Amino acid sequence: MIQAYFREFDVFSEEEIATFIQLFERKTVSKNEFFVREGERCSEIALIVSGIFRSFYSSDKGDDITYCFRFPNDLMASYSSFITGNPSLETMQALSQSELFVIKKEKIEKLFSQNHSWTKFLKIIAEQQYLELEKRIFQLQKDSAAQRYKALLEHQPEYVQLLPLQYLASYLGITQRHLSRIRREISF
């Protein structure tokens, strides 16, 4: 699985992939456990093998606001914390039993300094993260909650039904009651 993920980018040779995947560690995260918590420093990146994660932050009122879900075959990190070394502004929580491949920041930095293919790979990842963020901002400003829900269903139909309603409603920016109405109206 991890080899296939890196092959998709068409950046690394098979030998390079075989060498650096040995630097990843397999990690199990139980349901409701955290990959990183708000206020902690994020010093690793994970590739999700199985499971679902939600990213959230706490509002001034103390409410958890879910702004992102991560699914199998997604990279996951508190990127701003990972890049700057500052405490994370977000919490990443497993919504199900999960398996990850994790690599520490120092190992990535070493790879980056030894192999120029990592420059290209990290540029692609940064571009993907930017595009995802831009898409999310546009969705929130332009699309209705029903349109945002449909988009999520189209991209992750097998996982949407597994998301707890309170987190899904928070992600969509609506109440659970409104979400129930939308789900009844939309049939896939």
Rank of each mutant, 00 (worst) to 15 (best):
M1L: 11
Q3E: 15
A4I: 11
Y5A: 00
F6L: 03
F9A: 06
F9L: 05
F9Y: 14
F9E: 07
V11L: 07
E14W: 05
E15P: 02
I21M: 08
F24M: 08
R26C: 05
V29F: 01
N32Q: 11
N32L: 10
R37C: 02
G39F: 07
R41A: 10
C42I: 05
S43F: 11
L47W: 04
I48G: 02
I48A: 06
I48V: 15
S50A: 13
S50Q: 13
I52Y: 01
F53T: 01
S55P: 02
F56Q: 05
S58M: 13
S58Q: 13
D60S: 14
I65K: 11
Y67R: 10
C68F: 12
F71K: 01
Y79L: 14
Y79V: 12
I83L: 13
I83G: 00
T84Q: 04
T84H: 03
T84Y: 06
E90V: 08
E90P: 00
M92S: 05
Q93S: 02
L95F: 06
L95T: 06
S98R: 00
L100R: 02
F101T: 02
V102Y: 04
K104C: 04
K105V: 07
K107Y: 06
K107N: 14
L111T: 01
H116S: 14
S117W: 04
S117N: 15
W118P: 00
K123H: 14
I124Y: 10
A126E: 10
E127I: 13
Y130A: 15
L131M: 14
L133E: 07
R148G: 05
Y149N: 10
K150W: 03
A151G: 12
L152W: 07
L153G: 13
L153E: 11
Q156P: 01
Q156I: 08
Q156R: 15
L163W: 06
P164F: 12
L168H: 06
L168R: 05
A169Q: 04
Y171S: 01
L172T: 04
I174A: 02
I174T: 11
I174L: 12
I174R: 03
R177Q: 15
R177W: 08
R177I: 14
S180P: 04
S180L: 02
R184L: 06
E185R: 15
I186G: 07
S187I: 10
F188R: 07
